[in-house]
Structures are given as structure tokens and as C-alpha cells.
Computed example of a mutant assay.
Amino acid sequence: MTRPEGESEGADSPIPLPAGHAAGSPAGSVAGPAAKPRENLVHSLHDEVLARLREFIVEGNLGPGARVPERLLCERFGISRTPLREALKVLASEGLIDLLPNRGARVRRIGEREIVELFDVMGGLEALAGRLACERISDEAYAAIERLHHDMYGHYLRRDLHGYFTCNQAIHDRIVQAADNAPLSAAYASFAGRLRRARYSANLDANRDRWGEAMREHEEILDALRRRAGAELSDILFRHLRNKRKAAADREAAVPALGEIVAGESA
């Protein structure tokens, strides 16, 4: 199910310390023979902060154009500003936020024309990936996608949008991986981050059941992939992205400019 505005799963609890780092231990100390080197602990914390911050923004806790409230997020995640700002740099490179010189960061607002153009490019990339995947995918890789699909359907029945979207994105990523084409994978990754929030919000379309429509399209995707029907899967994926494009553009246009769901917070 979708969460109330401003809420994110587990967001009120601090990010757990990586294994081997006991709470209250001196900086750099280890706890037992399984402890990791300090640099690995720092890397693990960075990955955790990045994942939670990305999820927080993608799931609409901050509206398009909203200021990123650094102090509030540090308190929410139980971290200092240093790991938060490092994560913000990564999200800026992914196209989710804009860094403002000496003024913090804002959630990047995507205009309607840009959404149309980006989704068309993504549709083309996924269409090509589907065609190549049908030529190259192994039985094991297909079985993994099939399991993700069934998991996704379970989340859909429970109206768990967070779980559904996680599986959904994993399926699209696995199809691109199965295409086994490095330039295609690189191009896909460069656009995927910029559209992640828009793809999530498309399922919230109030004017029609886009979520149910997307689930039916994924049934078609799985069936074409099972039959290794490359041309058919290519067409389905392009149409899937076109349909999502319309819902995403409508959602983006409906949100007031600079509307902040988390308000009253200075950077």
C-alpha cells in the first residue's frame, strides 16, 4: 500500500550500523574476528544512506522542485551531514536532484516535453533490450525474472506500491542485463535514474487504473519473453513505456511547482 505523505518505511529509525561495528564503540574499533576494515564500514554506510535517500525521493516524500531538508533528513536517518551530502552528489549525477551553489539541493522537476522525450528514448532502449534478450537469455535468467514477476503480482494484490515498484524495476533491469550489450546497458543506466521518480508516480495516476494496466502489460512481457518472441516483446515494451509516459506527464503537471511535502525546514 502507498504510504502517507512524508512517511517512508522505517524512516523514523536510524540506519543500522554495519556488521562488526558495535554501537558506542570508539571510531575505527572492531568487534570480533568478523569485523570489516574501517573503509568497508564507511562504504557500507554510504550505500545504505544512498539507497534510503533515493527511495525517499522516488516515492514522492518531496515534490518536484522541493528543497531537500538536510537537517530533517539527518535526524530522520540518524546520520551526520557528511554522508548525506555525499549521497546527494550521487543522486545529482543520476538526475534526481539539482545541487544549488551554496543553497543546498532541490528535487529536479522534469517538464512535460522532457518527460515525453526521455520516455521515448527509454522505450527505444527497452525495445532493443527485449529483442536482444529473447536471442540471448538463459533458462536460469528467465526463471529469475519469472520469480520476480510473481513476487510483483503479490505486491500488486496487497496494494504494496513500494514492493511492487522494487520488483518492477528489477524486472526491467534484468531484461537489459539479459541483452548482454555493454553500450546498451550504459545508455540505459544513464537515463534510468532521471526517470525513476516519474516511473514510480505514474502508478498513482488518479484518472485511470494505470497500476492495473501496467500489471497486465507485465503479463504480456513475461509471456513474450518465455516464448522468446523478440519482435513481439520489443513492441510490448515500447508500448508499455508510452503508456507510462502519459500517466507520468499527467502526474508531474498536477504537482505545484516547488511544492514541498516536508515543509518548514531550512537547509
Rank of each mutant, 00 (worst) to 15 (best):
M1V: 00
R3V: 13
S8F: 02
G10P: 08
I15S: 07
P16G: 00
P16V: 00
P16Q: 00
P18K: 01
A19G: 09
A23E: 10
A31M: 13
G32R: 02
A35W: 11
V42Q: 09
H43S: 12
S44M: 14
L45E: 14
L50E: 15
R52T: 10
R52M: 05
E55R: 06
E55S: 13
E55Y: 09
F56G: 10
F56W: 06
L62V: 03
R67N: 01
V68M: 04
V68S: 00
E70F: 04
R71I: 15
E75G: 01
R76N: 03
G78Q: 08
R81H: 06
T82L: 12
A87L: 04
K89L: 08
V90P: 00
V90D: 06
S93A: 15
I97Y: 07
D98F: 01
D98V: 12
L100C: 05
L100S: 01
L100E: 13
N102D: 10
R106H: 11
I115R: 05
F119A: 00
D120A: 11
A129L: 03
A129C: 00
R131D: 05
R131C: 08
E135C: 02
R136V: 13
S138R: 01
A141H: 01
I145N: 00
E146L: 12
L148F: 09
M152T: 12
M152E: 12
Y156Q: 13
R159M: 07
H162E: 14
G163C: 07
I171C: 05
I171Q: 04
I171F: 02
N181R: 13
S185W: 01
A189N: 05
F191M: 10
A192Q: 11
G193A: 06
R199L: 07
S201W: 04
E213Y: 09
E213Q: 08
E213I: 12
A214T: 14
M215V: 14
E217N: 05
E217W: 03
E220P: 03
A224I: 13
A224L: 13
A224H: 10
A229W: 01
A229Q: 09
A229D: 15
A231S: 12
E232G: 03
L233G: 02
L233D: 07
I236G: 06
L241G: 04
L241C: 06
R242Q: 11
K244P: 04
K244W: 04
R245K: 00
K246I: 15
A247C: 06
A248F: 11
A249N: 07
A249W: 14
D250L: 08
R251Y: 14
A253R: 15
G259S: 15
I261K: 02
I261Y: 00
I261T: 12
A263Q: 15
